[in-house]
């Protein structure tokens, strides 16, 4: 199937995305093809521009060049109607959760419905409570975000993201700062609710093992470009040097630590 044929079937189609901050080129022509209903994880080292890429998709950061097509419609700067429709059909889960700290859990979840729809207040309350129930937070509906644990805040942010019944959810480092058990829990939650609600998910992370298990496709962002996009199986077998370096980073660490324990001199790796 040619690229032209696949374009019409893609839910989100990113071509040649560029972004620079002063002299620092962060994205130098990033491509990503996202089929409808799939979970795609964008992997990459810290500081490679994964979050910037996701913010360009969400419209928080304006890209310098390239094109983004959502469900066949271009999201360029002048197409305000398409951008508004994108915002209506898309949700964004921030790395920091970005919960409004002066609102209770219930008010946080109800906020997108209150501010962007004309749904009656009673229905907003019912839908918000339902979202809290699904994320097992209904007992904490009157608590403020600062009174919730890190994991609960993450679930609350997800409840707010799904309450509008979005077709696309963008997850920015959803497991940042969490322990391995909670990391697993977050990925489990993403897959569970993706199956339940059928949204398309783009997840940005550097947690390789979880991403390989939870995703339909993985992509690797490095050097300002997408170095790989394919199935987790293809990623595991890829002979591409960048993919191998990222994939083998755990093994490389083990070798380095072993060498250091033996008293051998180890040349430090590039930027950490």
């Amino acid at each position: 199937m040619s690229a032209a044929d696949t374009t019409t079937e893609l839910f989100l189609d990113v071509r040649g995305l560029h972004k620079r901050f002063g002299e620092n080129v962060v994205l130098a022509g990033v491509d990503l093809a996202v089929p409808r209903g799939s979970v795609i994880t964008v992997l990459g080292k810290s500081g490679t521009g994964k979050s910037v890429f996701l913010k360009c998709l969400a419209g928080i950061v304006r890209p310098d060049g390239g094109s983004i097509r959502f469900d066949g419609r271009s999201l360029n700067a002048v197409n305000a109607a398409a951008r508004a429709e994108f915002r209506r059909r898309c949700s964004y889960l921030f790395q920091s959760n970005a919960l409004l700290d002066s609102l209770t859990a219930l008010e946080n979840v109800a906020l997108p419905l209150e501010q962007t729809t004309q749904i009656p207040n009673r229905e907003i309350r019912e839908r918000s409570l339902e979202a809290l129930r699904q994320l097992e937070l209904d007992k904490h509906r009157d608590r403020y975000p600062s009174q919730l644990s890190g994991g609960m805040q993450k679930r609350l942010a997800l409840a707010r993201a799904i309450v509008t019944r979005p077709e696309l959810v963008l997850f920015d480092e959803p497991t940042a700062g969490l322990d391995p058990i909670r990391r697993n829990g977050v990925f489990e939650m993403i897959v569970k609710y993706q199956r339940q609600f059928g949204f398309t998910a783009v997840v940005v992370t550097h947690d390789l093992p979880e991403a390989l298990v939870a995703s339909d496709q993985v992509a690797l962002l490095d050097g300002g470009r997408m170095q790989f996009q394919g199935t987790p199986e293809a990623f595991s077998l890829s002979a591409d040097p960048t993919v191998r370096a990222f994939r083998d980073s755990a093994g490389a660490l083990r070798d380095t630590i072993t060498a250091l324990r033996r008293g051998e001199t180890v040349t430090s790796k590039e930027d950490l």
């Binding site: 419209g59 928080i60 921030f94 920091s96 970005a98 997108p112 501010q115």
Partner: peptide, 17 residues
């Protein structure tokens, strides 16, 4: 803390709110 960005991404009017 990205709370204003969150309002923008959900399509709410930050000015009105």
């Amino acid at each position: 803390s990205e709370q204003i960005d969150a309002l923008e991404t959900m399509g709410a009017s930050t000015h009105a709110y």
